[in-house]
């Protein structure tokens, strides 16, 4: 089993006629994903990689029975396309693009939560279920089927962890990129909850990074609800502090955001903290994961 993507997932690609949208459609199809359609307003009636293109999400849903969407839409048009997608009844949305204005993300997040839509991103590599399918840009060669879940704030580091595990003959149940922006459409704890409930997942790895308070808040959820083993790596110990101005952010976050603070919160919740990515192989071995 897996989370978010299964045999019933029928995907449309928004922005399918763009350079990245068409290349990634090719890779998603090659990985066995059921890509049933694409949407680019004004390009309806054409095909990309043999997939029919529609002018609107509503039409794509009606014609193909799509229930999930992955975005390769230019940043400036994402908010509009996102609202259209929710109105059309899609319940799973992966927003790959970066550089979306944060106030657009605030609106997207609010609307998605209100309508019960599960959305990931922005700036996410998406979701990959090894051997089954993927929504997004994760490079298939690094992943192997198995029973370890990965949630990552960083796209490239999700590949790194999956790659190290696969080399050690430890497979993954589902790999989820939650997005690297300051505001994301779903918080870490919500994704952990799906892994806790998934029968196909025995343990979970959190790949976090310095800044924000996702990991600290997730630690609260882990100590209350998680029974599966959890390991975590936090990138950015040697990253230079940005030249900071203004106090409002610091006041809101309080003591959250530092690598040490995150380690402390996660350890207190019983999480095994990995000082470096390579230690994930030993952790998997210790828990006899596969």
């Amino acid at each position: 089993m897996s989370i978010l993507i299964d045999d019933s997932t029928r995907v449309i690609v928004q922005g399918i006629t763009g350079r990245i949208g068409s290349v990634q459609t090719h890779w998603m199809l090659q990985y066995g994903t059921k890509v049933v359609g694409g949407v680019t307003p004004g390009k309806g009636g054409t095909t990309v990689e043999g997939v029919p293109v529609f002018d609107s999400v509503e039409e794509a849903v009606r014609e193909t029975g799509a229930n999930a969407s992955v975005f390769f839409v230019p940043a400036a048009f994402v908010l509009d396309a996102f609202l259209e997608t929710i109105e059309a009844g899609i319940k799973l949305i992966v927003v790959v693009p970066e550089h979306i204005p944060v106030r657009d993300v605030v609106k997207m997040r609010s609307f998605a939560l209100e309508r019960g839509v599960f959305a990931l991103g922005p700036t996410t590599p998406g979701i990959l279920v090894p051997g089954k399918g993927k929504m997004g840009i994760m490079p298939a060669s690094l992943f192997a089927p198995g029973r370890v879940g990965i949630i990552s704030r960083s796209g490239t580091l999700s590949y790194e962890f999956a790659g190290i595990l696969s080399e050690s003959k430890v497979g993954q149940s589902t790999v989820v990129g939650m997005g690297a922006d300051p505001v994301v459409l779903r918080n870490l704890a919500d994704i952990l909850e799906l892994f806790q409930e998934d029968e196909g997942t025995d343990a979970v790895i959190i790949v976090g990074e310095v800044g924000g308070e996702q990991e600290e808040k997730a630690a609260g959820f882990i100590s209350r609800k998680m029974t599966k083993p959890v390991a975590a790596y936090i990138a950015g110990r040697y990253s230079p502090q940005g030249k900071r101005m203004g106090h409002a952010g610091a006041i809101v976050r309080g003591s959250s955001g530092t690598v040490d603070g995150k380690h402390e919160a996660l350890r207190a919740a019983g999480v095994e903290v990995l000082e470096s990515p390579i230690y994930v192989a030993q952790w998997a071995k210790k828990h006899k994961l596969r």
């Binding site: 960083s154 796209g155 580091l157 990074e209």
Partner: peptide
């Protein structure tokens, strides 16, 4: 090629 990978 990514911020997380760069930081790590």
């Amino acid at each position: 090629s990514g911020a997380g990978l760069g930081m790590a």
